[in-house]
Amino acid sequence: MTKPGDKMTWKDVEIGSIVTEPGSASQYQTGDWRSQRPSLNRKKCIRCGICYIFCPEGCITQNAEGYFESNLFYCKGCGTCACECPTQAITMEQEE
């Protein structure tokens, strides 16, 4: 993709809307679908990784300190992590 999708004109569209760049879906920001964002309370978190396993978006990764963080570029705000967390360390907060 030479231009970001939302800047492409119809002339930039590849024939048959064929996608020639492998893995280009990773450039697609699903984070802007979100109306609530997960917020982690580190005091409650036991770093068990259950949120990481359950996130349907696969957007939670473990940082150097062992905490599990959500990548907000992709996080759709579904709340699954908050629901599954055994210690209620994650709360869903309204996006502005």
């Binding site: 999708g5 939302d6 119809w10 048959g16 809307s17 064929i18 996608v19 492998p22």
Partner: peptide, 13 residues
């Protein structure tokens, strides 16, 4: 990839 999905920002194009 043929027949990929197109969100509203590109379907019209």
């Amino acid at each position: 990839t043929m027949g990929a999905f197109a969100p509203p920002f590109i379907y019209s194009e």
